[in-house]
């Protein structure tokens, strides 16, 4: 796992690095520390990163602007902040976890487990996806998303109003932060079950999922049973 830490206080940065090393052990392939998010950005531009550990002063608008920018990236974001009371808001923007200072080794391990172990991850809190568009960021409310199609390192968000947005995360990473009614129905698709009209199983080879808008996407044969159960429950 490749990690980048953004923390302007040297002592705290050392603390985060040493704890991360202890928690991840051999799973950690690289860890770098940057003092500001802007420095981190240029690093991220040239290197691939799995997780951003972001120390954020969330007191005031600027902190959240930075957060929105961070979560629009391809990597997972874990926020570390002394502003515990802003945690819920941070989750709404799709951070994987929120560590309030000071934190323990155990708490940091839980945060990493959320990333590795997708089953445990769904915490239902994400409300917005921060999408990078030309000239800035666009905040897409998650209930606008009908289904999501994987396209390599990107995904395409198919919205209720018919528009499509590109989002800089893989389907796997996105699944970690999506609420439970978003279900992986195919290796390339995630469906928002609130907008599913019905599942069609015409024959064993062709199963499709039809949305209220009339759009239709394929469903994985292998996962069909599991998906059907989830659909019936929903």
């Amino acid at each position: 796992m490749k990690i980048i830490v953004v923390e302007d206080e040297a002592t705290v940065a050392r603390r985060i690095v040493s704890l991360t090393q202890a928690v991840l052990g051999t799973k950690l392939t690289s860890i770098v520390t940057k003092q500001t998010f802007y420095e981190a950005k240029s690093y991220i531009f040239e290197h691939s990163v799995d997780v951003l550990l972001l120390d954020l002063n969330l007191n005031g608008e600027d902190g959240f602007e930075l957060l929105k920018l961070a979560v629009s990236g391809a990597f997972h974001t874990i926020v570390i902040s002394a502003y515990e009371e802003r945690a819920l808001e941070a989750f709404e923007y799709g951070v994987v976890d929120f560590l309030s200072k000071p934190f323990t080794r155990k708490r940091l391990r839980q945060a990493f487990e959320r990333i590795v172990n997708t089953d445990k991850a769904s915490h239902y809190l994400t409300k917005y996806l921060s999408v990078r568009v030309k000239g800035g960021l666009k905040i897409v409310p998650i209930e606008q998303v009908m289904y999501i199609k994987g396209a390599g390192v990107y995904v395409e968000l198919f919205l209720k109003d018919g528009t499509v947005e590109l989002y800089d995360k893989t389907l796997e990473r996105l699944m970690v932060i999506l609420p439970a009614h978003f279900v992986r129905i195919h290796k390339s698709y995630i469906a928002n079950f609130e907008y599913v009209k019905m599942l069609h199983a015409e024959n064993y080879n062709k199963i499709t999922c039809e949305f209220l808008s009339g759009a239709s996407v394929p469903v994985s044969r292998i996962r069909y049973k599991e998906i059907k159960d989830a659909y019936d429950k929903n």
């Binding site: 002592t11 705290v12 603390r15 002394a82 309030s100 200072k101 000071p102």
Partner: peptide
């Protein structure tokens, strides 16, 4: 409190 929290995490290290 935030000053304190930030100081405490440094202390931990």
């Amino acid at each position: 409190p935030h000053f304190l929290m930030n100081s405490l995490i440094s202390l931990q290290q």
